[in-house]
Design a protein around this nucleic acid. Structure first.
Lengths: 361, 361
DNA sequence: TTGAAAGCGATACCAG
DNA sequence: CTGGTATCGCTTTCAA
């Protein structure tokens, strides 16, 4: 627990002044400090195991190199987690650290979280949500460069930039995948209309039919919820007691857990996947989609990419911002730049739960 | 983006000195500052929306009020996530903030993470792992108060305290639960022996038989892995083509995903759960165990509690530590106090996947 | 080429 | 009861 070495300790050991230490260790030694002094300084720093105190640095530079992340719910979901992981990796590359505050779905807590983070002098702020949704951006967020990931500003003018997945396209490409296998009677088991994710995926599903010149059978679209049991009961409704020719040949699910429920229902009814019925998930949930029996074909959410893209944009803003302030001018956040909506495409993952349409259908 | 107000601004507006501001705002005003001055100071602070700069505070107090958390893999698992959530809640209550660095299972990165965190002057460190396991504690961790959650020091002397779940007891109580329903031929589908979790749960399973005065049938214990497909194939081995009377009547799984696989296999074989076979999970994974069809009986890991317990112990150490340093003494981390292993019990959750043993077994 | 000094923002001690 | 001053650790400017 010995106290860490300071620049002064290094200076003493090397027999020079603090300033010299600072210069040398920041690469501005050449042309300012004698070469032999530089050498001694570096050695001293090494033996003392010196690293500058980031807190002092932050105070001095008025820049903490901390990015605050406010999250819906990191906790229980792989979703936020992966976005944050992607963001964090980019931040780390640039010498930033992230601190995340989780509101655990208590919307009233986000103002406080932003406040705390701002008090800590974060250089930028990112708001991440588990599911795609409009966000009422906490008031103080605009005090520093900010960005939204997996959510978007609920005000029409879109004050804060956002990075979101292209759900419409995802839904469309999922449908096109099974269509390419010959399926025409395709059901869609959606989550709910509380968040825009399901509606957008459904929109994509409709687009696919439109593009293929096929009619959409609205009775095939069921909004059932998001969990395994919802998938199970939804599939039962679609399949149980329904004679073969009137059954859909493929079921698209709005997430992988629904797909588990569907497969469960199929097995219970003695149906094989994908021989009798093709099933698709959505999300490519870690340790689930790939490990299912059969392994799930699914539409992977580009979570890490979204996090990385969001952080890249944010860091751009942060560093730009930093060099800017003309000392005392009431700089308002410049619209433009990051205050746009960036759509990241989803990725089709074909595994074993989708196959050719059964003979005669 | 106007620069935040400083104590000096408040002092100016109130027409007093910085020191007065400091005293009043820290509750030490009475008896030191005139009442009317206090009033003016408070007003000034309010109108300027003043909050002290935490960075300056940290520098001054040599205490950052930041706890660093190094994690295996927050990202993709609800496991770490919940531990961290529990820890974070406690930290927040005490005015601390946590910053977590995820090594994403790259063991070589934890030294670096600890280094970064230490550079940031964290007041304490916590190491969290996804699965229970022995940990080679990174060298520098001992420079500040530290604790392990869901892992334990691999050195025999146990230098660093740890909070872990009582897996042996969990395994035993899971077995006792189905025994209480009349089951005697009980199989155990374990993960693997790479981590201590499965072996300990198996040990508990054996304990249950021992206590009940029953023999353990070692052929009923299968170490298959941790995923859905492993559960599926494990169950197939146990059930497929095996005549009724020679089948186990209950299968205990080392996690909930294995249990999903087992149920999948049962349905495929035309077996009902729990009428023909009782199935138990482990972990009580969020959005999985409860939503399964049938809802899974399981042994809940006390993740939040573990996180909370670990943070409570750590904070105790941190604050104690702080008042202690006799200025320049080579204080070594005192063994005792938190450097013990705390076992947190798991919680039996009975749902619909376990039931009375079938007639005649 | 080097060292001394001025902040960054806040606290605490100590004269006045 | 109050205000000046040193300090935390570092960077940067300015003289010597």
């Amino acid at each position: 627990m010995n106290r860490k070495a300071t620049a002064l300790d290094v200076a003493k050991l090397a027999g020079v002044s603090r300033s010299a230490v600072s210069l040398v260790l920041n690469g501005r030694g050449d042309g300012n400090v004698a070469l032999e002094s530089q050498q001694r300084i570096r050695e001293a720093a090494a033996t003392l195991n010196y690293t500058p105190n980031k807190i002092a640095l932050s105070l001095r530079n008025r820049q903490s190199r901390i990015i605050g992340i406010v999250s819906d719910q990191v906790v229980t979901s792989p979703f936020d987690g992966n976005i944050i992981a992607g963001a964090d990796a980019v931040a780390r590359e640039h010498g930033f650290v992230t601190v995340v505050m989780d509101t655990e779905l208590d919307g009233s807590r986000d103002e406080g979280a932003v406040e705390t983070l701002l008090d800590r002098q974060v250089d930028g702020l990112m708001y991440v949500t588990v599911g795609l949704r409009p966000l009422h951006v906490p008031a103080n967020m605009e005090r520093v460069p900010s960005i939204l990931a997996n959510c978007f500003d609920d005000r029409p003018e879109a004050g804060v930039g956002a990075v979101i997945p292209d759900e419409v396209r995802g839904g469309r490409e999922a449908a096109e995948h099974v269509m390419s296998l010959g399926h025409r009677d395709i059901a869609f088991l959606a989550g709910d209309s509380l968040t825009p994710a399901a509606p957008r995926r459904i929109e994509g599903y409709r687009d696919a039919f439109l593009r293929a010149g096929l009619p959409v059978n609205e009775a095939r679209v069921l909004q059932v919820g998001w969990d395994i049991d919802a998938g199970f009961h939804g599939a039962m409704k679609l399949l149980d007691g329904v004679e073969g020719a009137r059954r859909p040949t493929a079921i698209l699910c709005a997430n992988d857990r629904l797909a588990i429920g569907v497969v469960l229902a199929c097995y219970r009814l003695g149906l094989s996947v994908p021989q009798d019925l093709s099933v698709m998930g959505y999300d490519d949930e870690f340790r689930v989609a790939k490990a299912m029996v059969p392994a799930l074909s699914t539409m992977a959410l580009p979570l890490r990419e979204m996090g990385a893209a969001a952080m890249t944009a944010l860091l751009g803003d942060v560093t730009q911002h930093r060099t800017q302030p003309p000392e005392g001018s009431e700089t308002h956040r410049v619209p433009g730049g990051s205050s746009t909506e960036t759509m990241v495409p989803c990725r089709l993952v074909v595994r074993d739960s989708t196959g050719p349409v059964p003979e005669g259908r």
